[in-house]
């Protein structure tokens, strides 16, 4: 256990240092633009998996939380010119509150009803923002980036580093949950909610906790997106594609372990970047859909499930 923790934090520091160093040595800005998107998807799918994976509640509301994160930042910038750190912090708080509200409304529902309800939440929130004149309405809103500070050469480089910090934070939280009694409780209620209750697991409270943490992280991941694009409009910020991409990444990676969504997000994120550049964004959505269906049908426990199966058939339990 102890050694694992040292290895984990050592790796996390190494990862952050590598991102910082790359800002000094990599000249081509494209890598930062692409890297940002991949890191953002890692945060989103790790966050999704806390409720969707550990607890088995398939949340289609990722885009709602993400979009609210984007628009919280937009609002703070246009209203008081808030700095990036404040944007993210406030977005996390808004996400937690929203997670609590959505959880209260939907977490008593089972299975597909919960999923449908989360789609509904997304559309209702999107429509509200679309009709919110001061946030630009349907046409969207432009925002200005402030000048960048050392050691970064461009604002996007800094955003990449910030998103990398969020990756470390979300993975650390997810890892903590998985190894703690919270994770065991979520796993139990995922397997059988009534049996979990009758074994002493406070199922509603655990689900709410998962929903709040998941929502806070998703909103936080969305906040820097406003500065990344310097522009926000409801149709893209709340696009259902985020929900399905993130869900696909988590399920393809595997949700039984925190590393699963990380693997899935890197794999699909890189593939998407390559396809968008080389072919078209439509084909990249097609590949996403096909991979989702193939994995759900053929490898229900995702990539980490395939690995485990391989190990088990070699004789290790």
């Amino acid at each position: 256990m102890k050694r694992n923790a040292i290895a984990f934090w050592g790796f996390a520091l190494l990862f952050l240092a590598a991102i910082l160093l790359s800002a000094q040595f990599v000249a081509n800005e494209y890598w930062f633009f692409a890297g940002y998107v991949i890191l953002q998807f890692i945060v989103l799918s790790v966050a999704w998996s806390i409720l969707g994976g550990y607890a088995g509640y398939v949340n289609f509301g990722t885009s709602a939380f993400f979009g609210v994160g984007v628009y919280t930042a937009v609002f703070l910038v246009s209203a008081i010119g808030a700095p990036l750190a404040l944007q993210i912090a406030v977005a996390a708080i808004v996400g937690a509150v929203m997670g609590f509200a959505v959880g209260l409304l939907t977490l008593r529902m089972q299975g597909i009803f919960f999923s449908i309800a989360t789609i509904a939440v997304t559309i209702v929130v999107e429509t509200t923002v679309t009709n919110w004149r001061s946030l630009g309405g349907a046409a969207g809103i432009q925002i200005q980036r402030p000048p960048v500070t050392a050691p970064f050469h461009s604002y996007v480089q800094m955003l990449v580093f910030v998103q990398a910090l969020l990756v470390v934070l979300s993975v650390a939280i997810s890892r903590y949950i998985q190894n703690s009694w919270i994770g065991r409780g979520l796993q139990a209620l995922r397997d059988d909610e009534l049996a979990a209750e009758c074994t002493g697991v406070p199922t509603l409270r655990l689900k709410m906790t998962a929903c709040v943490i998941s929502g806070a992280l998703m909103c936080a991941a969305g906040a820097p997106g406003a500065m990344y694009l310097q522009y926000a409009d409801p149709a893209s910020a709340f696009n259902l594609n985020y929900s399905v991409s993130v869900l696909a990444m988590a399920l393809i990676g595997g949700t039984a372990h925190w590393i699963g969504p990380v693997i899935g997000a890197i794999l699909l994120g890189v593939t998407q970047q390559l396809l968008t550049v080389t072919i078209s964004s439509e084909v990249n959505v097609l590949v996403l859909g096909v991979m989702l269906v193939l994995f759900v049908v053929g490898a229900p426990e995702g990539i980490i499930g395939l690995f485990r199966k391989g190990r088990r058939s070699e004789g290790k339990a």
Binding site: Q187, A188, R190, D191, D192, L194, A195, A196
Partner: peptide, 11 residues
Amino acid sequence: SFQIPRPFRSM
């Protein structure tokens, strides 16, 4: 206990 056993299957 339950009439039809309800174990936590993934454990």
